[in-house]
Design a protein around this nucleic acid. Structure first.
Lengths: 224, 224
DNA sequence: AGTGAAGCAAAACGCCGTTATGGCAGAGCC
DNA sequence: GGCTCTGCCATAACGGCGTTTTGCTTCACT
C-alpha cells in the first residue's frame, strides 16, 4: 500500500541520482524515463520501490528535510542564544541555497509531477523546526526577548527567513536590496521586534555572521 | 517574435478561462488541450495568440500582478502611515488567498509547463511593490521608524508577509500557530523592528485590522 | 475579381506517467 | 535435485501532454 518512503538500505542510489538530477538540471529533467536511464534500469524499478513518481518525489522531500536538519545540528549552542537563533536563520538559508530545487519542492512550490504534500510530510517538516523553538525559548529565559511564546517567535523567524529565501531563489532580490543585505536587516529587525534591545541584537547578529564561517561552513562541506 | 503578452482586446477570453481553470482545478488542469476544448477551439489558437503554453502562463502572471495591484490601490492613505503599511501587508495576503494557484506561479513556485520568469516579469512584479516603499517613506517622514531606507523596509515587509503566505498556502501553519495569529505578531514585530514604539505599533496594526473590513473587503468584492 | 495575410482545424511527432504482461532469479521446502 | 512461489524488472502498450506541420478558410484591401 504505502510506498517505501525512506529505505536507505534498499535503493539509496535511485533517490540519490534523482536528487542529483534535480539539483543539476532542474525540475524538467526529473522524469521517470530519464531517471531510469540514468540508473540503468527500466521505469518499473521506480514503481516497485516508490510506488510511482509521486512516491519518489515524496522520498526526496524527506531527504530535503534531513539535509535541513543536518544544517541545523551544525549550529552549536553558545552562551548567546540570540546569536544562536540568528545562526539558525543563516543555516536555513544556506540549506536552501545549497539545494534550491529540492527546497522549492519541499515548500509547496514546484508542483512536480502533480506531487503535493500530505499532512504527514508537513508534520515531518514542522518537526525539523523544533530546534528553532527550543533556541527561542532560551532567548526568552535569558531575558533577551519580551515575547512569551517561543513557538510563535520561531514561526515568525521561519516565515521571515523563508520569505526572504523564496524571493531570493525567485530572482526578485537584486542590488541594492539584495538578499545578503536584506538578511542582516531582517535578522536584527526580528530580534528587536520580539523584544531584544537594538544594540544587543545588532551585536548578536554580527556575531552570528562570524560564526557562520567558523562553525557552519565546515559542517556544510563535510561529505556524508 | 515576442508573444502578445497582454492584448486585452484580442483574446481576453482565453487567458480568463485559463485563469479560471487554474483557480478552480489547480495546476494539473491547466493543459493546452484542456484550455482549447474549454474555449471551443484547437490548441493552435494558443500558439497564434500567446506563442505557446509558456507565453500564456506569462500572460497569467502579469494578470496576477494586476490583481495584486488592484488590492493595493484599494488601501487609501490615512494620517497613520504605519496603519497604512500594515493594511498593505494584509492586502497582499488577501490577494494571495484569493488567487492561491496564480500566486504560486508568480513567485517561482509551481514550475508550470516548464515556465520560468524572465527579468522583465520580475521587474513587473517589483514595480507592483513601489507603493509599499512609498508608504514606508511616509512612516519614516512621520518619525515613526528609525530605519532610514524606505525600500529596505518595504523589502523586509514583503519577505516577511510573503513567507507567511507561502507557508500558509503550503499548509504548514496550523493551530495554535495559525496564519491569522502569526500575521498579527509579524506585523507588530516588523514595525517595532524598524523603529516604531511597541505601543504605537500595536495600535496601528489593530487599526489596520479594523480597516481591512471597512475598506478592503468592499474593494475585493466589486466586480471588474 | 484578385491577392495577401491571418487564424485555426487536423494530424502527426516525441515526450510524459502509468499499467499489463511475462520472463527470470533465488528462497523455502519436499 | 526438483518444485513452487515470490519479488524484481524489461518490454511494450495506452492515454495525455506540448509542439509543429500542413493546408484550408476567411476576410481586408486594391
Amino acid at each position: 500500500m504505502s510506498p517505501r518512503r525512506s529505505d536507505p538500505t534498499a535503493r539509496p542510489t535511485l533517490v540519490d541520482i534523482a536528487a542529483r538530477l534535480l539539483a543539476e538540471e532542474g525540475p524538467q529533467a526529473l522524469s521517470a524515463r530519464r531517471i531510469a536511464s540514468e540508473v540503468g534500469t527500466s521505469t518499473m524499478a521506480l514503481y516497485t520501490h516508490f510506488n510511482g513518481m509521486r512516491g519518489l518525489v515524496r522520498a526526496m522531500v524527506h531527504e530535503g528535510f534531513t539535509r535541513l536538519q543536518h544544517y541545523f545540528t551544525g549550529v552549536e549552542f553558545s552562551d548567546d542564544p540570540v546569536s544562536d537563533l540568528a545562526l539558525l536563520g543563516r543555516a536555513y538559508r544556506c540549506n536552501a541555497l545549497a539545494n534550491p530545487h529540492l527546497y522549492a519542492v519541499m515548500f509547496g512550490g514546484s508542483s512536480l509531477a502533480g506531487f503535493s504534500l500530505d499532512e504527514e510530510d508537513r508534520q515531518y517538516g514542522r518537526y525539523t523546526l523544533a530546534g528553532v523553538a527550543e533556541c527561542a525559548a532560551r532567548c526568552i529565559e535569558a531575558g533577551r526577548f519580551h515575547a512569551q511564546d517561543a513557538e510563535l517567535v520561531a514561526h515568525q523567524m521561519w516565515s521571515a527567513v523563508h520569505g526572504l529565501v523564496v524571493l531570493e531563489l525567485g530572482g526578485y532580490l537584486t542590488e541594492p536590496w539584495d538578499a545578503d543585505r536584506l538578511l542582516e536587516a531582517q535578522l536584527v529587525g526580528l530580534m528587536v521586534g520580539v523584544g531584544d534591545l537594538r544594540e544587543s541584537a545588532t551585536g548578536s547578529v554580527a556575531e552570528s555572521a562570524r560564526r557562520l564561517q567558523e562553525e557552519l561552513v565546515p559542517v556544510a562541506d563535510d561529505s556524508a
